[in-house]
Design a protein around this nucleic acid. Structure first.
Lengths: 97, 97
DNA sequence: TAATCATTTAGACAACTATCTAAATATATG
DNA sequence: CATATATTTAGATAGTTGTCTAAATGATTA
């Protein structure tokens, strides 16, 4: 999960993911929405792609980026496994009937 | 969520969280389980504490560390919001009745 | 083919991070 | 009080990361 955590550990990259929820965009359209140069955005997109969070498909001159959220499943499972009460209660508690 | 993502973006820190699921441990007990110096572990514990993922309580000579998973809720919600289908289907599909 | 547009690659640089050793602080105990 | 134990703080260093500019690649169009 290293690549995934690394990819998510940046506000710009998380914003890109949020952006793509509205539908696919190409690299230029994504870059337009940030106050950052295109090479920088290209680098972020590369890290997202390495993590499997986005898929890049060349369409003529353009490169289309689309979300792939299946990669989040493992992380989701890990997080959820923390949520369920793992320990027995230490003091007796009246349960709802 | 920056502190949270930063805290989770390290294998040692994630291992510490996994360790603490088995119950509270003090700093020394945690350090014992890693091939790393105590100051390094202390630093990792500090970052986990900053993110709110663990709580440190001094008990005499020792410092007890315990999990606090409530901080994960926001992240969990964000991840889950990606899972639900956001778009209408593009081709008609027979729904289960 | 030449010119233009979209995107990425290369290289540089400042800032941040993980780790270490040495020292400091705090608590317990003879 | 003096010594030992637990933990953190300080400072140093190598490696990583985010960003930029300049150049390269690839596709479209005059």
């Amino acid at each position: 999960m290293n690549h995934l955590f690394k990819a998510l550990n940046d506000p710009t990259r998380r914003q890109i993911l949020d952006l793509l929820r509205g539908g696919d965009l190409n690299a230029g359209e994504i870059a337009e929405r940030f106050d950052m140069t295109k090479p920088s955005i290209s680098h972020h997109l590369d890290l997202l792609r390495q993590a499997g969070l986005v898929e890049a498909t060349k369409q003529g001159q353009f490169v289309n980026y689309s979300l792939n959220t299946t990669v989040m499943d493992e992380l989701l499972a890990w997080l959820l496994s923390f949520q369920k009460a793992p320990e027995a209660e230490k003091t007796p508690v009246k349960h709802t009937p």
